[in-house]
Design a protein around this nucleic acid. Sequence first.
DNA 1: ACTGTGACGTGCT
DNA 2: AAGCACGCCACAG
Length: 141
Amino acid sequence: MDSAQFHEAVYNVVRQIPQQHVTSYGHVAKLVGMPRHARHVGQALKFLMPGVQPPIPWHRVLAASGVISSRGPETDGAQRQREALEAEGVEVIDGRTGEMRVDLRRWGWFPPVGSIDTGVDAEAADNDGENHSQQEREDED
DNA sequence: ACTGTGACGTGCT
DNA sequence: AAGCACGCCACAG
């Protein structure tokens, strides 16, 4: 999986986040098969944000803590994200230190890995370190 | 090759 | 809940 495929997978996953729901960078990373690449999901969104044809709901992705990441003191990205979320009915809470957060217990969308079509070959994903063999058994529980 | 950085995550105080 | 340390990975200097 190279960066182009990664970007495409991120695009396809983010596009499937339902309205009035949010997910985290880390979970998107897991869904596309690269669990340790949460930061790069943000990078991909930054790259994809401008003028993509079917506009993607980039505002539905935030940090695992539920906080809308501030892109820097001189930027308005976080504010725009907040407005986009509220526009579709998601409640955004103001913290004391000015941070904006969403209650993931209420608005969170975290589908199990494998249940989402990334449009990209998942086998080409991150298989370093702890790769379990092909025969995983998910038939427990 | 090394260092700093970032739309991040987890664990501990 | 909030802050901090540390891990993480690709990229720019």
